[in-house]
Structures are given as structure tokens and as C-alpha cells.
Write a protein that binds this DNA or RNA. Structure first.
Lengths: 153, 153
DNA sequence: TATTGTTATACTCTATAACTATA
DNA sequence: TATAGTTATAGAGTATAACAATA
């Protein structure tokens, strides 16, 4: 038992359910996954759109659209860059910062609900297995993992 | 160590990498994730669009678009339903069936690459943990898992 | 009256290409 | 000349609502 395919199917189901849970939570707040990913990258301060495009591995034009949406819904604003008049600094509004803090908190609570009561041995074993899988997937994809911020939510 | 949040982050990274690997593979074949999900549901035979909409948890109109795309690119055809003249049976073409078989095979090979060499203990422990996580996520979401086909690819 | 699938419309995410302002 | 961000255009996925044909 525990055939490789069954394990992969479980992992894919976890992915699907995690995505569904996340989306449902975000919808209530008027956010989408992509917009949230961008907002998440502002946790440590304002960033230029170029920076965000590279971190999200997305075309600059895509960031324009995401920032447009987040601006229209009151989560961020475009502020002038102090040193470069071509660039803007995408900056969370008070509301955006509040929602962001809330999302970070929700992430922590979800982690506790899912893994908080695993005993030490199981937890170690699970993280070790996941680390191995991440390494193998990176090899398969040829991902260098350069330049990314923290994990998306 | 092995804090709950680190484990969740690993799981999210696995999700992200699995998605990237899948998309890259599908692009080469002229498929998208949604279209592939639909094609996958035809593995055991033709289905009506209503059936597909329920299985994919998506609006009927969305299925129309996906079937349009798959028809235009030669993966499926719409055949008359023998008993119900309102309905159509979405049916893989020869090409579609061939690609589908190839995808199923690729899924098996990926599983082997990721988990084929785990020792019995680790494999059991990993699947047990994943099953627990699936259960908890289902509870969180209130997912009844009725009516779905096999896992999407 | 209920169901199957469609046309019509709209929003989001993504991409490429051409352009403006600035460096 | 190179970079930051935009307008323009396009394709994919999703949704709701109104409608046709059929059950």
C-alpha cells in the first residue's frame, strides 16, 4: 500500500482544498489570489512595480492591472518614488495594512489547525518528506528560486 | 523546530511547484489546466456537459467555453445523446484519447519520481499525515465531496 | 414546469507589442 | 540606449441572466 500515485493524488487534493479555502476567505474580503499575493509582498514595506513583477514572475503589464484593482478597492496607493521619477512605490493604505495583518494572522491560525497537534516525530517526518519533494520538483522544473519574497499566502 | 507555519509554507510551495510543473507540461500539448481537467473526466467515457459542470463545480456556461476550446483544438467532439435530444455527449477524439493516455502515464511517472524511493515507513507516515490534512481541510470548507470524479491531474 | 445547452455580457488574470517619460 | 510604467489588444477562465429546444 501507499503506492506513489495514491500519495501524489493526496497531495493534489490537499493543493486543491488549500486553494479553495484560501479563495473563499479572500472573497469575503474583496480580494483575489493574485491581488493578495501582491499585497503580501508589501508586508515589509512599499515596493516598485518592477520589483513586484519580478517577485511574482509576471509581466509588468500584469502588475499594472493588479495595482489598478487594488487601488480601486482601497488596499494600496501609488506613491512617488523619492529617487526615481519614472517609478512608483506601491504602498498599502491603512485598510490594506490592516487586512494584511489579518491575513498573516489567519495563515498562522490555519497552520495551527492543520498541524498544531501533530506529535514531534510526525511533524519532523512530514516536513522532511515535503522538503524532499520540494527539492525534486525544483530539479524537474529547473527553478532557481532567485529573487522571490516569502511564500505567497 | 517544525513549527506549524513552516510546514504549511512547505505545503504551499509544493502546491505552487506542482502547478507550475503541470502547466508547463500541458502548454507543450496545447492544453490548459481547466481543459485538461475536463478531458480527464472523460477517461471512462463520454459525459454530458451537465455532468461535467457538476463534477468540475463550475457553471454550465463555463463548460460550454471549455468544450468549444477543446473542440477547436481537436481534443473532443460533441456527439448527440442517444436518449435525450437536449443533451450532447462530450467525447474524446482519437487524438484526445491518445493525449489523455499520455497524461495518465505522465502522472504515474511523476508519482514515481517524487515518491518511488521512499522507504515503507516514510511513505506510510506521509500518506497518513496527508489524509489527516485532507480531512481537516474538508471540515473547514464544509466539503461533502459528493459527485466528484477522480482527482484532477 | 424543469432541464440542457446556448447567446449575451462582464470581470479577472495573463501575455506581447508599441509608446512616453525619465535615467 | 536602457528602464519604469502605460495604452492597446488578445486569449483564457469564470460568473449571472435570459432564452431556445426538449423532457
Amino acid at each position: 500500500m501507499a503506492a506513489p500515485e495514491a500519495t501524489l493524488d493526496l497531495l493534489l487534493e490537499v493543493s486543491s482544498l488549500l486553494g479553495a479555502d484560501t479563495r473563499r476567505d479572500l472573497e469575503r474580503r474583496g480580494l483575489t489570489e493574485s491581488r493578495t499575493h501582491l499585497l503580501w509582498l508589501l508586508a515589509e514595506g512599499p515596493r516598485t512595480q518592477q520589483h513586484l513583477a519580478r517577485a511574482m514572475r509576471v509581466a509588468p503589464r500584469t502588475v499594472t492591472g493588479l495595482v489598478d484593482g487594488l487601488t480601486a478597492t482601497g488596499f494600496v496607493s501609488r506613491e512617488p518614488h523619492p529617487d526615481d521619477r519614472r517609478a512608483v512605490l506601491v504602498t498599502p493604505t491603512a485598510h490594506g495594512a490592516e487586512v494584511l495583518a489579518d491575513l498573516v494572522d489567519g495563515h498562522r491560525r490555519l497552520a495551527d489547525q492543520l498541524f498544531g497537534d501533530l506529535d514531534e516525530t510526525d511533524a519532523e517526518s512530514l516536513t522532511a518528506s515535503l522538503r524532499t519533494v520540494v527539492g525534486r520538483l525544483r530539479d524537474l522544473i529547473g527553478d532557481d528560486d532567485e529573487d522571490r519574497g516569502e511564500a505567497s499566502c
